[in-house]
Structures are given as structure tokens and as C-alpha cells.
């Protein structure tokens, strides 16, 4: 089956973000396809290369990046959610004259159109929700 994931949950709080990651791992292990993982709202912090998680805690940024690189996943952060959280790739850092690129290279920035395209494309779209 072809899946897309919509991740609204922050990687820094709660379990929902890690649940999305575990779902992706399990689906890929069973031979399913992940068309795209779209990170929106607080979920965009999943791509923040400068975040540091304490020893003994899962590091969702590293785990997503590793999974993405291993399976060549399309990990996309909503650009407007990302920019206001300080997540910039090289071209956005240059455009807004900020000091550094903060987006992990396993991720990319993109518009909501990529979420829309994914919903049209896939068999199942799963939302991993934000705060209730």
C-alpha cells in the first residue's frame, strides 16, 4: 500500500512524533511505500539540525534523517511553519539574511501543495496529531 504521513506533533514533546516514525519503519519493513512525510505546524521541528536531545532520550531528528536516508524518503517541512520556527535551508538563510542554515540536509522545505499532491496520490494518509 502507498502511504503518506502528516506529522503535526512536535518531536520535543509527547509521543506522537515518534509514533509516526515507528509507523513509517514498520510500514517500510513490510514492503509498503511511503510516498511522502509532510511535517506541518509544530511537526516541522523534526528537521531542526541544531536541536540537541539529552542522552538516554530518543533523538527524533537523527532517527527521521537516518530513516529518510536509508529509504530515500521525501521528508518535507511546510515552509511557512518552518520559517517562523527558524528552520532555514541555505537559500532561505541567504534570502532572509540569517546567519546559518538550520535545516537537516535529509529534509526539504516545500509548500502545502505537496501535502495536497500526496493526498491525491496515496491509498492512505495518516495524521499524527499535535496537542489535544
Amino acid at each position: 500500500m502507498n502511504y503518506a504521513l502528516l506529522v503535526l506533533a512536535s518531536p520535543a514533546s509527547g509521543l506522537s512524533n515518534l509514533s509516526a516514525l515507528r509507523f513509517a519503519e514498520a510500514a517500510l519493513a513490510r514492503g509498503h511505500k511511503i510516498h511522502r512525510v509532510f511535517f506541518l505546524d509544530q511537526g516541522t521541528s523534526s528537521g531542526l539540525a541544531t536541536s540537541v536531545y539529552p542522552q538516554g532520550e530518543a533523538d527524533p531528528v537523527a532517527l527521521w534523517a537516518e530513516l529518510g536516508e536509508r529509504h530515500n524518503l521525501d521528508l518535507v517541512l511546510c515552509i511557512s511553519s518552518a520559517l517562523k520556527r527558524g528552520l532555514l535551508d541555505a537559500s532561505e538563510a541567504a534570502r532572509y539574511e540569517r546567519q546559518a542554515q538550520t535545516l537537516h540536509p535529509a529534509f526539504s522545505l516545500g509548500g502545502l501543495g505537496l501535502l495536497v499532491e500526496a493526498t491525491a496520490e496515496v491509498d492512505r494518509l495518516l495524521t499524527f496529531g499535535g496537542p489535544s
Partner: peptide, 14 residues
């Protein structure tokens, strides 16, 4: 929070 706005933005994009 920002989820209400995120939902409407997604609707407009769709």
C-alpha cells in the same frame, strides 16, 4: 495554538 490556522491553510491550498 496554531492548529486552527494550519487546518484552514491546508483547506485553501487543497
Amino acid at each position: 495554538g496554531s492548529l486552527a490556522r494550519a487546518a484552514v491553510d491546508a483547506a485553501l491550498a487543497a
